[in-house]
Amino acid sequence: MRTGRLKLSGVAASYHCMTRTVNGEHLFKNREKEVLRKMIWQVADFCGVEVLTYCIMSNHFHVLLRVDDRQQVSDAELLRRYQVLYPKPTKYQTASVILMRKTLLSGGEDADVIRRQLRARMGDVSQFMKALKQRFSVWYNRSHRRYGTLWAERFKSVLVEGKGNPLQTMAAYIDLNPVRAGLVEDPKDYRFCGYAEAVAGVAEAESGLLRIWSDHAAKQIDAALQAHRMLIFGKHAARAGVSDISRERALKVLEQEEGVLPKAAVLRCRVRYFSDGAILGSAEFVRGFSKTWQAERRRKYPPKVNAMKGADWGDLSVIQGLRRQVFS
């Protein structure tokens, strides 16, 4: 399938982005995950995108972003964001900032060139992913005396309806990655995901969770955490347990018995809708972007809107029905 993103302009949009290491090699231990975690927040600040949640695994990472490409960025903010990328600047980088500030203050054509170059890297999920992956690759290769490409592909992305059930379900799916991999029973115990950072009281992660649950009257972080936990664990949330339906049992019910399971149980399976579905949201939302998707891919016929199967997904639909197995 095509990687990258469905390109929209003039609107705020949410995207689930995922990328893997070359050959799926398990290259990231705690140190690497910690560096990548910091870079996610750092590059998001520079690009002016909002991280709603994320999860870093040993051979891939997920990030759920809210992007508004209608940003008006002042010269002072451009300089601040540029400096965010260099928390420990070299003499050359410090001199570059001083020169940039003088040029912007003086105005003229040179100042306009700087503004265009910096603004072109902001408010765009593709630019965010490009900058993040490049910066991490440079650090990783230098740290490990390694050469060559680190990532297997550009990245996959799914356009997600930016409120309600679609956004909340996607966020829960991302946060449950370490549970799905058998690393922890509770994502709050996995330090490299957005939910764990929100539980720990990290302001940026709390802000993302509040955005995810903004339509749920969750104006305070405690309410947002409770709502998210209820989605992750279903009726078991009150006693902080995990679903009593194993992943193996869930897959058997879904694939062999063609049954329907509670959403909390199915989210513990790998569901390809969330990485390969192209557009995810209510049927109306998906239908609204179908012509954009069709034009971008130069398809002769418009795509169908497909209701998601296998669980009580509510009103969730995708633009690609997925011919191969949906669950794996």
Rank of each mutant, 00 (worst) to 15 (best):
Q117Y: 03
R5D: 03
S74F: 11
S143K: 15
I174H: 01
L65M: 13
Y301H: 14
Q127K: 15
K188G: 11
R70P: 02
G107S: 04
V253I: 15
R191M: 10
Y273L: 04
E204T: 14
L64R: 00
L209I: 07
A120P: 03
F136S: 01
L209W: 01
C55K: 01
N165R: 11
L225Q: 03
K291I: 12
E77Y: 04
G201V: 06
Q117H: 11
F192Y: 15
Y190T: 05
A217P: 02
W151Y: 11
L167N: 05
R247T: 02
P166N: 12
A131M: 14
E248D: 13
D215R: 11
S106H: 09
V271F: 01
L322K: 15
E32Q: 15
L254I: 13
R5A: 12
A198W: 03
S290C: 02
T53Y: 05
E257F: 08
R116I: 06
N59M: 10
V160E: 02
G107L: 03
R249F: 03
A283C: 06
V67A: 07
N177H: 05
V260E: 05
A295I: 06
M18E: 02
L8R: 00
A196D: 03
V63L: 12
G4C: 04
M18Y: 10
A13M: 10
Y301T: 12
A224V: 05
L27E: 11
S282T: 15
L210K: 12
N165Y: 04
Q93G: 03
A217E: 12
Y147T: 12
L159R: 09
V199T: 07
M308Y: 05
Y140A: 11
M230S: 09
S137V: 05
W213R: 07
G241S: 15
P262A: 01
A196Q: 06
P178D: 12
D189R: 14
V125N: 03
E185F: 08
S137F: 00
K309F: 01
L118E: 13
T21I: 02
E25Q: 13
K188Y: 01
L254E: 04
C55F: 03
T53Q: 11
V326Y: 06
L209M: 13
L27T: 06
G194C: 04
T149S: 13
Q72Y: 09
P302S: 13
M170I: 01
L322P: 09
Q320H: 10
E296W: 07
D222N: 10
L251D: 07
S246Q: 06
S126V: 10
S58R: 01
A227S: 09
P187M: 00
Q42P: 00
R116D: 13
G148Q: 09
F155W: 11
A264C: 14
L225C: 02
N59I: 08
G241F: 04
T90W: 00
V125H: 02
R239Q: 11
Y301C: 08
L85T: 07
I279M: 09
R298I: 05
P262Q: 03
S282L: 05
A44P: 12
M100S: 14
K291H: 14
M1N: 04
T292R: 10
T53W: 07
V138A: 08
E185D: 15
V266N: 01
L209F: 05
T21N: 08
F233E: 12
K263G: 00
T19L: 06
K309H: 05
C55H: 04
V242A: 10
V67G: 07
D312F: 11
R115W: 03
N30T: 13
G310W: 08
Y82C: 05
R146V: 09
G208Y: 07
A283D: 08
R2M: 10
A196E: 06
